[in-house]
């Protein structure tokens, strides 16, 4: 099991575990709600609800 750190889920306020090696800008799925969360800072890890998919996203 990879190292994890805890952070607050921005939607529910619960403590959640996230991989210790997350990067600013990375998206993780909330283990509580399944919603996409964006890492806005590390050390400590802060999360925000990720922006919704837009039509021009892609390759």
């Amino acid at each position: 099991m990879a190292d994890t750190v805890t952070a607050e889920d921005p939607i529910t306020g619960e403590e959640i575990e996230v991989p210790a090696d997350v990067e600013v800008g990375e998206i993780i799925d909330s283990p509580v709600t399944g919603a996409e969360l964006e890492v806005i800072s590390v050390d400590p890890v802060e999360l925000e609800e990720a922006p919704e998919l837009e039509e021009d996203w892609g390759e």
Binding site: V24, E26, E38
Partner: peptide
């Protein structure tokens, strides 16, 4: 330059 770090960007970084 990014607005979202996908797995791809993470590999590159």
């Amino acid at each position: 330059c990014y607005s979202r770090i996908r797995r791809d960007e993470k590999l590159l970084l």
